[in-house]
């Protein structure tokens, strides 16, 4: 990663994350196929909902015959954390047009959010439309194509898990977290590690009482409050 904020560098920076989208996208397509969703449904869900874990839950709930209202509420709960990420990226686009804000926000994902946060450490805390749109659009298209591919080959390949592809996403978050901790010099390494440790402990406790996605949201909020408390200005 460097200090360039161009279409080309956005394309280059997002490439490593593409493996994660391909691995999980194919897995989703295969799952959707087993639940009898058509290729068109898979494509539309990837283009319209565009949210990995929510798509798995929506598909599972559709197969279980859940009412639409319940599926929508689950989607809101699973995706609620996205509002925190949008809120964090948005200040860097405050001076840009309303349309550019909506465009950048519409396709923001966990991965492109994390890339943006890494990028800030190289660009003297600047982001722009060309760079983020380019990363967002590559991610969006790769996700849609991967899910369709999974849906088409569903049943043909034995088990995508045996190839280890499902771990691509976890590995990517490990890389993004590590790079964020070492490149964000706005506070010392130790402070970052304190927040990590606090969030890890919170996750273990919270996951006794709630689903993983809700625990992620709550642990993040509490972890940020903890960070504020130990970093009083």
């Amino acid at each position: 990663m460097d200090d360039q904020l161009t279409y080309r560098s956005g394309f280059k920076d997002v490439l490593p994350t593409v493996f994660g989208y391909i691995g999980v996208g194919i897995a989703f397509g295969i799952v959707a196929k087993t639940y009898h969703l058509s290729v068109l449904m898979v494509l539309l869900m990837s283009l319209i909902v565009y949210a990995g874990s929510a798509q798995f839950i929506i598909t599972g709930m559709l197969a279980a015959g859940s009412p639409i209202g319940a599926i929508v509420v689950s989607t809101i709960l699973i995706n609620a954390r996205m509002s925190l990420m949008s809120m964090t990226v948005a200040p860097y686009f405050k001076d840009k047009s309303f349309g550019e804000n909506i465009g950048v926000g519409s396709l923001l994902t966990d991965e492109t959010f994390a890339l943006s946060m890494n990028k800030l450490n190289f660009t003297n805390h600047h982001l722009n439309g060309p760079w983020l749109n380019s990363a967002n659009i590559v991610a969006y298209l790769v996700w849609a194509l991967a899910t369709v591919a999974g849906s088409l080959i569903g049943g043909l390949i034995p088990n995508p898990e045996s190839l280890g592809l499902d771990f691509a996403v976890v590995a990517m978050f490990i890389g993004l977290l590590y790079l964020q901790i070492i490149t964000d010099r706005s506070r010392p390494l130790l402070k970052h590690l304190q927040v990590f440790l606090c969030v890890a402990i919170l996750m273990i406790i919270l996951m006794r009482f709630m689903a993983g996605n809700s625990a992620i949201l709550l642990a993040t909020i509490l972890g940020c409050l903890f960070g504020m408390a130990v970093n009083r200005k």
């Binding site: 954390r81 925190l84 990420m85 809120m87 964090t88 200040p91 966990d110 959010f113 994390a114 946060m117 996403v169 976890v170 978050f173 490990i174 993004l176 977290l177 964020q180 901790i181 964000d184 706005s186 970052h192 927040v195 990590f196 969030v199 890890a200 919170l202 996750m203 273990i204 996951m207 993983g212 996605n213 625990a215 992620i216 642990a219 993040t220 972890g223 940020c224 409050l225 960070g227 504020m228 970093n231 200005k233």
Partner: peptide, 21 residues
């Protein structure tokens, strides 16, 4: 703004730890 400055590390930590549990 101060709160949001902790979001990147906190949320990535939460996502990573969730995958270990």
């Amino acid at each position: 703004t101060h709160f949001l400055s902790f979001v990147p590390v906190a949320i990535l930590s939460a996502i990573f730890v969730e995958s270990l549990l």
